[in-house]
């Protein structure tokens, strides 16, 4: 296989509150000999909130982000579900509406850029599965996850709206399940795997947010999960950082490690504890590292 090479859009979270997401992504890419070129010029995707305030501005800024991947001629890879969806929605809007594309390009021209629509945008999960392939990953496993029951938590913005995520059935998603199996873990089957974690109303509707996260975590725990794994750092933040509050709100102890998808892969590929970065979790997770 010729070397895979992508433009990496880190998003804000991986640069701030989840440094372990970035380090584990880079570690997995290094182990699998995937080249990632960091898009240093990129700005925030708006996290599904900027478009509520100013939809046009949101399109302009995301079109600019995509321009830099186009300049490199590389598929853009994201490591956050919400970044993925926001960028994909701008791409869809501009590619299907020439008048909007022209209005956006009028602005981009002022800074010497042009959005063309020439590159694909995909989440790292699908770069691994579709491009690198599960067979190839399973050959690289050095630390099989066979002693773990792992609950896949997909996160809304990687599966809905389904026309932007063609390879996944939003009612029975299976990419993460298949990845867990390729790493020789046991995939926990539970009804909440495709539900919402409530992150996006964390500030203004805290109760809703905590009940939604809690319902999913309780479902995973009741189905004997040892950990939850998610491709979305926002799901991770909601379910890792607020466990005490969620336990109080739901009346159930929801303590369980919440891993980022690349952390799980890094674990199976034998990456170092520093690269996997479990110490950055608010809820205890370091105990899942194999004893040195």
């Amino acid at each position: 296989m010729s070397q895979l090479h992508y433009a990496l859009y880190t998003g804000c979270t991986a640069k701030q509150s989840t440094p372990e997401l970035l380090s584990s992504t880079l570690a997995v890419a290094a182990k699998l000999d995937i080249e990632l070129t960091n898009l240093e010029e990129a700005s925030c995707c708006g996290a599904s909130h900027l478009q509520d305030f100013d939809p046009f501005l949101s399109h302009v800024l995301n079109a600019r982000n995509i321009c830099y991947a186009e300049k490199l001629g590389l598929t853009m890879v994201t490591i956050c579900n919400t970044c993925q969806l926001n960028l994909a929605m701008t791409k869809e809007a501009l590619d299907s509406d020439p008048a909007l594309k022209a209005r956006v390009n009028e602005k981009l021209k002022e800074v010497g850029l042009e959005y063309k629509g020439t590159v694909a945008i995909k989440h790292f999960l699908y770069a691994l599965i579709d491009d690198y392939t599960l067979e190839a990953i399973s050959q690289k496993v050095t630390t099989p996850l066979s002693h773990f029951n792992i609950a896949p938590f997909y996160g809304c913005h990687n599966i809905r709206p389904s026309h932007l995520h063609k390879s996944e059935n939003p009612y029975v998603p299976n990419s993460l399940d298949n990845l867990i199996l390729a790493l020789e873990g046991k995939a926990v089957d539970y009804a909440s795997k495709n539900k919402c974690c409530g992150f996006h109303v964390e500030l203004q509707a805290n109760h809703t947010s905590e009940i939604l996260a809690g319902n999913a975590m309780i479902d995973a725990i009741d189905n004997n999960a040892d950990m939850v794994v998610t491709p979305c750092p926002l799901c991770h933040l909601k379910m890792d950082t607020y466990q005490d509050n969620i336990s109080k709100t739901t009346g159930r102890d929801v303590n369980i490690p919440i891993l980022h998808m690349p952390q799980m892969v890094a674990l199976a590929l034998g990456c170092s504890a520093d690269e996997i970065g479990l110490k950055y979790h608010v809820s205890k997770a370091t105990h899942i590292m194999p004893k040195a």
Binding site: C12, T13, K15, Q16, S17, A42, S43, C44, G46, A47, H49, L50, D52, F53, D54, L57, L61, L203, Q204
Partner: peptide
């Protein structure tokens, strides 16, 4: 909620990124 939505512009203007 409205400050949260608008706050993204404020933050992006300062850093390009969101200051979480």
């Amino acid at each position: 909620a409205t400050r949260h939505a608008e706050g993204f512009v404020r933050s992006i203007k300062k850093h390009g990124f969101l200051d979480e």
